[in-house]
C-alpha cells in the first residue's frame, strides 16, 4: 500500500510531463521515466520478473527507439506547438474527460468488494514452466509475430532501391 501511495503521484506527474512537454525529446524522456516508475511499482507489488521485463523492453528498447527516431526525424520547432496548444487542449479534454470519468468512477465504485491482499509470489521457475507447457502455442505464435516484425521493420528501413523501383512501376 505504501509504495502505491508514493509511486502513484510520481507516475501521474511523469505521464503528465510526457503529454505536456512541448519539446518532443523531453516528452520521450518523460515517457521513459513513466515506464521506469511503473516497473518499480511492479517490483514493489511482488511481480519482480514482470518489472525487470518492463525495464528491459520498455525503458531499454521502446523508449530508446522513440528517442532515436526523434533524433533522426528532427521535428520542427515547438513554438507552433505551444501556440496551437490551448485550442487542441480544449478539444482533447472534451473527448478525454468523459472517458476518464467513466473509467475512474467504475474503478472506484465497482471494486468495493472485499478483496484480501494476499501478497502473491511470482516464482520465475513456475512462470517458465507455465510458459513452455500450457502456454507454448502462444509463445510460438509470438515468435512468428516477432520474426515477421523483424523482417518487416528491416524492409521498411531499407534505403529504396532505384533500379527496382523502375521495374515495379509497370
Amino acid at each position: 500500500m505504501i509504495p502505491l501511495l508514493i509511486l502513484s503521484p510520481l507516475i501521474l506527474l511523469a505521464a503528465i510531463g510526457a503529454v505536456w512537454m512541448a519539446r518532443p525529446v523531453h516528452a520521450a524522456l518523460m515517457l521513459a521515466l513513466t515506464l521506469a516508475l511503473v516497473a518499480v511499482l511492479y517490483l514493489a507489488l511482488g511481480a519482480e520478473f514482470i518489472g525487470l521485463v518492463q525495464f528491459a523492453v520498455y525503458v531499454g528498447a521502446v523508449a530508446v527507439l522513440i528517442v532515436f527516431s526523434l533524433l533522426i526525424t528532427r521535428p520542427g520547432d515547438e513554438a507552433e506547438e505551444i501556440e496551437r496548444r490551448p485550442r487542441s487542449l480544449v478539444t482533447g479534454l472534451l473527448c478525454t474527460l468523459p472517458v476518464m470519468a467513466v473509467l475512474a468512477y467504475t474503478a472506484a465504485s465497482g471494486s468495493n468488494i472485499k478483496l484480501i491482499p494476499w501478497q502473491p509470489k511470482l516464482s520465475i521457475a513456475e512462470l517458465g514452466e507455465v510458459l513452455f507447457t500450457s502456454h507454448a502455442p502462444a509463445v510460438l505464435a509470438l515468435a512468428v509475430l516477432l520474426t515477421a516484425v523483424l523482417i518487416g521493420a528491416a524492409l521498411f528501413a531499407r534505403e529504396p532501391d532505384k533500379t527496382q523501383d523502375d521495374s515495379s512501376e509497370k
Partner: peptide, 19 residues
C-alpha cells in the same frame, strides 16, 4: 487505487494521441 491510477494513465495517453 491501482484501477484509478490506471484509468487516469489511460486518459492521459488518449489525450496525447488526440492533441
Amino acid at each position: 487505487m491501482m484501477l484509478t491510477l490506471s484509468s487516469v494513465l489511460f486518459a492521459l495517453g488518449l489525450l496525447a494521441v488526440l492533441t
